[in-house]
Computed example of a mutant assay.
Amino acid sequence: MNEEKQPIGLLTMTKETKVGVFFGAFYLGLGIMLGAFAAHGLKDTLSVYQMGILQTGVKYQLIHGVALLILGLFCSLYQQRLFYIALICIAVGVGLFSFSLYAIALLGISFLGIITPIGGVFMILGWFITMYAVFRNK
């Protein structure tokens, strides 16, 4: 049986997808660099407490970097504005959350700890918007 295969439609990379892929790749690349730098270059400089704070920031940044790549694809696949809003919430949340933790761990700027939970709220909001977008999708 020599059936001809139909061409697969190419995924259109929308502006929203590009934003998601950009921030996902940026957070992933930077997370790997910071994690490696901390593990190898700062292991004798930072306290266990500081290293834990830094590792928490890196972990959330890496996990959400992958999530931003996926949400960027959802923007192209489903063409729903809600996925883009969720993507922006998560990107902002990761920036606030992780970078405030980096400032606390590396620079000792403890008053920035007030920003960390704001970043967490943005990430949570982004995930709730994602859940809503999935159930709203027809």
Results as ranks from 00 to 15, higher is better:
residue 1 M to F: 13
residue 5 K to H: 14
residue 6 Q to D: 13
residue 6 Q to H: 15
residue 7 P to A: 12
residue 9 G to K: 14
residue 9 G to D: 10
residue 9 G to N: 11
residue 10 L to N: 13
residue 10 L to V: 15
residue 11 L to V: 14
residue 12 T to D: 08
residue 12 T to P: 00
residue 15 K to I: 05
residue 15 K to C: 01
residue 17 T to P: 07
residue 21 V to Y: 07
residue 21 V to Q: 05
residue 21 V to R: 04
residue 23 F to L: 14
residue 25 A to F: 07
residue 26 F to G: 04
residue 26 F to I: 08
residue 26 F to S: 06
residue 27 Y to H: 13
residue 28 L to N: 11
residue 28 L to Q: 11
residue 29 G to E: 05
residue 29 G to K: 06
residue 30 L to I: 05
residue 30 L to G: 01
residue 31 G to D: 09
residue 32 I to R: 05
residue 35 G to H: 09
residue 37 F to Q: 13
residue 38 A to I: 11
residue 38 A to M: 13
residue 42 L to G: 13
residue 44 D to E: 13
residue 44 D to G: 12
residue 49 Y to K: 11
residue 49 Y to S: 08
residue 49 Y to F: 11
residue 53 I to M: 14
residue 53 I to R: 15
residue 53 I to F: 09
residue 54 L to M: 14
residue 56 T to Y: 02
residue 60 Y to C: 06
residue 60 Y to A: 05
residue 62 L to A: 08
residue 64 H to E: 08
residue 66 V to P: 01
residue 67 A to P: 11
residue 69 L to V: 10
residue 69 L to R: 02
residue 70 I to Q: 06
residue 71 L to G: 06
residue 72 G to F: 10
residue 72 G to N: 09
residue 75 C to P: 07
residue 76 S to H: 09
residue 77 L to D: 00
residue 77 L to S: 03
residue 78 Y to I: 01
residue 79 Q to E: 13
residue 79 Q to K: 15
residue 79 Q to D: 12
residue 80 Q to D: 14
residue 81 R to E: 09
residue 83 F to E: 00
residue 84 Y to Q: 12
residue 84 Y to I: 05
residue 85 I to M: 03
residue 88 I to D: 03
residue 88 I to Y: 02
residue 93 G to P: 05
residue 97 F to R: 06
residue 98 S to L: 00
residue 98 S to Q: 01
residue 99 F to Q: 01
residue 102 Y to E: 03
residue 102 Y to V: 03
residue 102 Y to C: 03
residue 103 A to H: 01
residue 103 A to S: 14
residue 104 I to R: 06
residue 107 L to T: 07
residue 109 I to W: 08
residue 109 I to D: 00
residue 109 I to V: 10
residue 110 S to L: 01
residue 110 S to A: 03
residue 112 L to K: 03
residue 112 L to M: 08
residue 113 G to A: 07
residue 117 P to I: 02
residue 117 P to A: 01
residue 117 P to Y: 02
residue 119 G to N: 07
residue 119 G to K: 07
residue 119 G to H: 07
residue 120 G to D: 04
residue 121 V to F: 05
residue 121 V to K: 00
residue 125 L to Y: 02
residue 132 Y to K: 06
residue 132 Y to T: 05
residue 135 F to C: 05
residue 135 F to V: 14
residue 135 F to I: 15
residue 138 K to G: 11
residue 138 K to V: 04
